[in-house]
């Protein structure tokens, strides 16, 4: 049995916080379980939930857990505003509201048989983690698997242990770069797009999934195009203001698309015409 949107899509379900884990100075992970049962939270990689703090407000947050794990619902959140700040102040045992899952998913079936390049930046690695789990769970269906990850400084590298585990596997390639570092960092220093330029994959038959700050995605698409990856095989995850997540409130409009229901994952050619237009 899965938890799905209630008949009234605006009504949050109470979920208890099982565990809270600090990831970075401003980023943390919550493991959640429905208060009134309901079993596994079924979702597709790339989808998001609306998380509600009693009386404070609600924000869209991507799901960052393993879609095939029947354990708790996992969200990794960066505290940047009122609601995310209130979430950061919560502890195991506290209860929050959850609505979802909403939105489109990374096209993992379409990518079968191809090299898959995941280009991510900053906290954008969190929405990418479910797809990494999926790709690894069905590793034989894909060609080369690459994670190209950029962060601000070594201290901002998210899921560091997990990245190291993935890096140690022989069936995937993990490359991490930071924008700036002091001498203690032994890894790469430079922009994430440089990882794209030198990564070993077949650009003419690779699927690229991009998730990070919008400006980083802009440069990443350019770098992927320069390598020869066609727009139709690039997908990216967009972010806009959201109040309802079901296409009523109008806030998340991005040209003719609603980020909440047509996205957040878009095939690049569907948004290409407006992606670089100012203030869309």
């Amino acid at each position: 049995m899965s938890v799905t949107a209630a008949a009234d899509p605006m009504l949050p379900e109470p979920f208890g916080i099982l565990r809270k884990r600090r990831e970075l100075s401003d980023t943390f992970t919550l493991e959640l379980s429905p208060l009134h049962g309901g079993g596994t939270f079924a979702f597709r990689p790339g989808q998001f939930n609306m998380l509600y703090v009693f009386g404070v407000g609600e924000i869209p947050i991507s799901i960052s857990g393993d879609p095939e794990d029947d354990g708790p619902l996992v969200h990794t959140i960066r505290a940047v505003g009122t609601v995310s700040g209130a979430l950061r102040d919560m502890e195991a045992g506290d209860v929050i509201g959850v609505r979802g899952p909403f939105g489109s998913a990374w096209p993992v079936e379409e990518a079968e048989g191809r090299d898959v390049v995941l280009v991510t930046g900053g906290v954008g690695l969190a929405p990418m983690r479910p797809v990494i789990h999926h790709l690894l769970a069905h590793r034989q269906r894909y060609g080369k698997l690459l994670i190209l990850y950029g962060a601000r400084t070594p201290e901002d590298v998210l899921f560091r242990k997990q990245l190291e585990q993935w890096r140690s596997r022989f069936d995937m390639f993990v490359d991490v770069t930071v924008d700036r570092a002091t001498g203690k960092w032994r890894g790469r220093v430079g922009v994430v797009t440089k990882l794209i330029a030198r990564a070993g994959f077949d650009p003419h038959d690779a699927a690229a999934f991009v998730c990070g700050p919008e400006v980083m995605m802009r440069f990443s698409v350019q770098a992927l195009n320069e390598r020869g990856v066609a727009d139709e095989r690039i997908h990216l995850s967009m972010e806009r203001n959201m109040k309802c997540a079901v296409g009523f409130c109008g806030h998340c409009q991005f040209g003719g698309q609603f980020v909440c229901k047509d996205g957040p994952v878009f095939r690049f050619d569907a948004i290409r015409d407006i992606f670089s237009v100012w203030e869309v």
């Binding site: 605006m10 509600y52 009386g55 109040k243 009523f248 409130c249 109008g250 806030h251 409009q253």
Partner: peptide
């Protein structure tokens, strides 16, 4: 049709409600 929501509580913090209001782009 654009709208926004406001989540508010009473003074005791025991009751909360969500109000939807017309909004404008």
């Amino acid at each position: 049709f654009c709208s926004t929501v406001e989540d508010v509580t009473d003074l005791t913090g025991g009751e909360a409600r969500r109000e939807r209001r017309w909004d404008s782009c």
